[in-house]
Design a protein around this nucleic acid. Structure first.
Lengths: 125, 125
DNA sequence: CAGCATCCCCTAAGATACTG
DNA sequence: CAGTATCTTAGGGGATGCTG
């Protein structure tokens, strides 16, 4: 049995599943794996997310020690997010999810090469 | 751009994230990786899930060709769920999530060895 | 620019009861 | 045993406007 902030888990996998059981966190990690990003950049990368939800999710990830938040005292303000050690360790997870998606699409999806995201195009090289 | 049932995705990873963006599907896969299971067994393995939700999630996974559903015409009824090829390919994903959880717990959690789930105990061997 | 503050809505998920 | 059928609820998430 594991306890993290008085929340108990029967199995290690449940710790991971519990943290990432929402719609956005893994997506945020995916984009931060390309390097640190400003709030605005993340908001553009994940165009479907609202500012409010992004703010909440970033805060949650910071509390769980998965990302760092660095504030630059400038005007206009500049805030940069980056992955912690724990965050960087998620790369294998996301890579496997990506690979699974590629295979799944090849079996059950239809593809149009245009309008693909940059991550996708970079991987194709 | 990818299309799966007229739903469009900018990147392969989004296909994966979209399928598993709820609270239970990956947990179900995790347990099915140990072998085929009856409805009742899954319901006991994941004791927090309700019958209704389990039914819905199993149906969704079947529709997405991730699990098989086999009905035995007996009384009382017997239904066995197992992973398809696509489902089995999720093993690396779950394994990486498990490993991440182990490491995360070692850094931020407290452990009591008793009352651990069988998966956890098997892995310790 | 990077956020709060509000207000609002939908739906994933829970609780409970019933059936072939 | 393996599900339906209802009813209900919490909270994740959206839309919009404001501020240091």
């Amino acid at each position: 049995m594991y306890f993290i902030n008085n929340k108990e888990f029967k199995c290690s996998i449940n710790v991971t599943l519990d943290i990432f059981n929402d719609r956005w966190k893994l997506s945020i990690i995916w984009h931060l794996l390309q390097g640190e990003k400003r709030f605005k950049d993340l908001n553009e990368d994940i165009s479907e997310i609202t500012q409010k939800t992004l703010t909440i999710k970033l805060k949650e990830l910071e509390e769980k020690n998965i990302i760092n938040r660095e504030v630059f005292p400038e005007v206009p303000p500049k805030v940069v997010y980056s992955l912690t050690e724990a965050g960087l360790r998620l790369k294998p997870v996301l890579d496997e999810m990506y690979d699974w998606g590629v295979k799944y699409v090849s079996e059950y999806g239809k593809i149009t090469e245009d309008n693909m995201c940059y991550t996708e195009l970079n991987r194709k090289k």
